[in-house]
Amino acid sequence: MPDQRRADARRNHARILAVAEREVAAHGSEASLEQIARTAGVGSATVRRHFPTRHALLTAVSHERVEALRRRALDLTTHTDPRQALLDWLDEVVAYCVTARGLATALSYDEALVPENSCSATLEEAAGPLLDRAAADGAVADGVTVRDLITLAVGIALAVEHHPDPPATAQRLFGLAVTGLSPVRR
């Protein structure tokens, strides 16, 4: 469907989004909407007209990364080991959330603020077959949902945001979540 907005509105949207991507990369989910407006050369009302909430802005900024994760989930559905396919995808979700500032917040579930989270819905739909295959193979506990897994990834990313080495810490915590607290006793 073609974009029905006026040319100046399309240009403003593109400029705001480009500036927002840089600001979110630099400052994370707390990037200043006012600074984004100033840098984009528009008023704050224009930013809010295009992106009525901070979450809407973060969703737009995260769109390409979410699409990459969606495509990766689809690619992994043919992996021969369903458990490993799911873990590989989750590992990439955690890594993206840690390195792509703002993505963890865009994926966060807050039903009061964002009743429909399009980023998470996209990933839930894409990862559903991965989880189904892993569950059918007995590799996942009963009752685990993709939403649970996304919440786990987001929680890890947000928890390590201010650590000296967020990617390494996130990787270690994700490994701990996968293997559990206790070693397997034989």
Results as ranks from 00 to 15, higher is better:
residue 3 D to R: 07
residue 3 D to W: 01
residue 5 R to V: 01
residue 5 R to P: 04
residue 5 R to W: 07
residue 6 R to G: 10
residue 6 R to A: 15
residue 6 R to L: 13
residue 7 A to E: 13
residue 7 A to K: 10
residue 8 D to E: 15
residue 10 R to W: 02
residue 12 N to Q: 15
residue 12 N to V: 07
residue 13 H to C: 02
residue 14 A to I: 08
residue 15 R to V: 12
residue 15 R to C: 05
residue 15 R to Q: 14
residue 16 I to V: 15
residue 17 L to D: 05
residue 20 A to S: 09
residue 21 E to M: 08
residue 24 V to S: 05
residue 24 V to W: 02
residue 26 A to I: 04
residue 27 H to D: 12
residue 29 S to Y: 01
residue 30 E to Q: 14
residue 31 A to Y: 15
residue 32 S to Y: 05
residue 32 S to G: 02
residue 32 S to H: 06
residue 34 E to Q: 08
residue 35 Q to H: 14
residue 35 Q to M: 10
residue 37 A to N: 12
residue 38 R to W: 10
residue 38 R to K: 08
residue 40 A to K: 11
residue 46 T to Q: 13
residue 46 T to C: 05
residue 46 T to F: 11
residue 50 H to M: 06
residue 51 F to W: 11
residue 53 T to A: 07
residue 56 A to P: 03
residue 59 T to I: 01
residue 61 V to E: 03
residue 61 V to L: 11
residue 62 S to Q: 11
residue 66 V to P: 07
residue 67 E to Y: 01
residue 69 L to W: 12
residue 70 R to T: 12
residue 71 R to N: 12
residue 73 A to T: 07
residue 74 L to F: 10
residue 74 L to H: 15
residue 74 L to T: 13
residue 76 L to M: 11
residue 79 H to A: 15
residue 79 H to P: 07
residue 79 H to K: 09
residue 81 D to L: 02
residue 82 P to T: 10
residue 83 R to M: 05
residue 85 A to D: 06
residue 86 L to N: 03
residue 86 L to R: 00
residue 89 W to D: 01
residue 92 E to A: 09
residue 93 V to F: 09
residue 94 V to P: 09
residue 96 Y to H: 11
residue 97 C to D: 10
residue 101 R to I: 01
residue 101 R to C: 02
residue 107 L to G: 06
residue 108 S to T: 15
residue 108 S to R: 15
residue 109 Y to M: 06
residue 109 Y to I: 07
residue 110 D to I: 02
residue 111 E to W: 09
residue 112 A to F: 06
residue 112 A to P: 01
residue 113 L to T: 09
residue 114 V to G: 03
residue 114 V to Y: 06
residue 115 P to T: 08
residue 117 N to C: 02
residue 120 S to E: 13
residue 120 S to N: 09
residue 121 A to N: 14
residue 123 L to P: 04
residue 126 A to L: 06
residue 126 A to Y: 09
residue 127 A to H: 12
residue 127 A to W: 13
residue 127 A to R: 07
residue 127 A to T: 05
residue 129 P to H: 04
residue 131 L to S: 04
residue 131 L to I: 00
residue 131 L to H: 00
residue 132 D to N: 03
residue 132 D to L: 14
residue 133 R to E: 04
residue 134 A to Y: 01
residue 135 A to R: 14
residue 135 A to M: 02
residue 141 A to N: 01
residue 146 V to F: 07
residue 147 R to F: 03
residue 149 L to E: 08
residue 150 I to S: 03
residue 152 L to Q: 08
residue 153 A to S: 14
residue 154 V to Q: 11
residue 154 V to M: 08
residue 156 I to M: 12
residue 156 I to A: 05
residue 157 A to L: 04
residue 158 L to N: 03
residue 158 L to G: 00
residue 158 L to P: 01
residue 159 A to G: 07
residue 160 V to K: 06
residue 161 E to V: 07
residue 161 E to C: 00
residue 162 H to F: 06
residue 162 H to K: 11
residue 163 H to S: 14
residue 163 H to C: 12
residue 165 D to R: 11
residue 167 P to Y: 07
residue 167 P to G: 11
residue 170 A to K: 00
residue 170 A to M: 04
residue 171 Q to T: 09
residue 171 Q to D: 14
residue 173 L to M: 12
residue 174 F to T: 00
residue 178 V to G: 00
residue 180 G to Q: 00
residue 183 P to G: 02
residue 184 V to H: 05
residue 185 R to L: 08
